[in-house]
């Protein structure tokens, strides 16, 4: 396990944010960490929806249980967190 910085682009928010996560975090945990900095601060919560993580520029989200270390994300790569 190691600290791993990502760039968070949360759906409906206006700005990219620094998102420190752990290499052992799953994508659901990454989404929750990203939500901490956007949802309830500038983005309204959307009950009943699931947050998914995808690489910027792709349509398909990462599997929800995939760990950061198992993905080929690079440090500070921009991820999009989208409501599903």
């Amino acid at each position: 396990m190691a600290l791993f910085p990502l760039t968070s682009n949360f759906q409906g928010d206006f700005v990219l944010q620094l998102l420190p996560v752990d290499t052992d975090n799953t994508m659901d945990e990454v989404a929750a960490a990203a939500a901490h900095h956007s949802v309830g601060r500038r983005v309204a919560a959307r009950p009943g929806h699931v947050m998914r993580v995808r690489r910027q520029g792709t349509e398909e989200a990462f599997p929800r249980t995939l760990k950061v270390s198992e993905s080929d994300l690079k440090p500070m790569e921009c991820i999009e967190v989208i409501w599903e």
Binding site: T7, V15, L16, L18, L19, Q56
Partner: peptide
């Protein structure tokens, strides 16, 4: 905030664009 905005390596300003349903933010 509880984190930093990611800033641009040229203008050094937060990378931002239109939010909401028309969400246009990208790196």
């Amino acid at each position: 905030p509880e984190t930093l905005p990611v800033v641009c390596n040229m203008c050094q300003l937060p990378i931002n664009a239109t939010p909401g349903p028309a969400w246009k933010v990208r790196d």
